[in-house]
Each structure stands twice: as structure tokens, then as C-alpha cells.
Amino acid sequence: MSTENYPRIYLYKRIVQAKLFIDSHFAENIDLDNISDEAYFSKFHFIRLFKKIYGKTPHQYLIFVRIENATKLIRNGITVSETCHTVGFESLSSFSGLFKRMVGKTPSDYFAEQQYLKKEMLQTPLKFIPNCYVSQHGLSKK
């Protein structure tokens, strides 16, 4: 039976499972060919359907998830080199290049910016809260 003949919802479930697999295993050395095999798809059909649903090929999506998770780690104060390896990149230079392309700044600049913001939020939190909520909540503006 060709995959074209499967009920639409069945195909969706397979693609969604593949997406969730990438979401939870992004840090590992994922072989995307294996994912299409496990989804019982031809590689071509798998990539085509994945891109139709998520707007990215599985490989592009894997890079996207790694960089998204890198921003979370950096926000939490994890160093750039540790973040690079934690999210599954082997080369710091390719990580930095992809990060800059997707986030708009280098990981080091992003790290410095987030550290500054975090400090500001802790020291002067009321700068980040609209004043109406501050007064409604009975807090005074510092």
C-alpha cells in the first residue's frame, strides 16, 4: 500500500511523532533517514509532508530546535561553549554561524545581553511591569 493511500489522520500522526522525536532527541546525533524509516514513509514523501506541515524540512527543523534550545540555555546563564555541545553541535564555529543567522546576534553577544537583562529584572523589576499593574497590585514604583 502506498503512503498516498493511508488515511490523512494516520499520516499526520506519523509526522507529528517524528516532530516530537526531534523535539526530545535534538541533542543526540539524530539520523533523519531513520526517522522516515520509522514513520513508514519513503524519505521523499516524509520530507515533503513534514515541510508542508511545519514549513521546514526535518533537517531545517532540527537546526531550529537546537538553536531555540540554545537561547533558553544561554538565558539561564549556561556558557556559549557548553550550550553548543549540550544542544548537539560539534563545532563551535558552525553553532555560532547558525545562531547569528537565526537570532540576529552572536551567542556571546546574546549571552551578555541576557545577563544584563536578568540583572536588571532582579534589581529593578518594576521597570519591566506596566505601571497600571504596579499600582493595582499595591506596589510602589521605585
Binding site: 490523512r8 507529528v16 511523532q17 516532530k19 516530537l20 511545519y54
Partner: peptide
């Protein structure tokens, strides 16, 4: 969302 069926399946799985 871009695709309701896919998003539904994903959120349900979560």
C-alpha cells in the same frame, strides 16, 4: 496555527 490537525495531534500527545 498553520495546520490544525497536526497541532491537535501534537498537543494531545503532550
Amino acid at each position: 496555527c498553520k495546520d490544525l490537525l497536526a497541532t491537535y495531534e501534537e498537543l494531545k500527545a503532550k
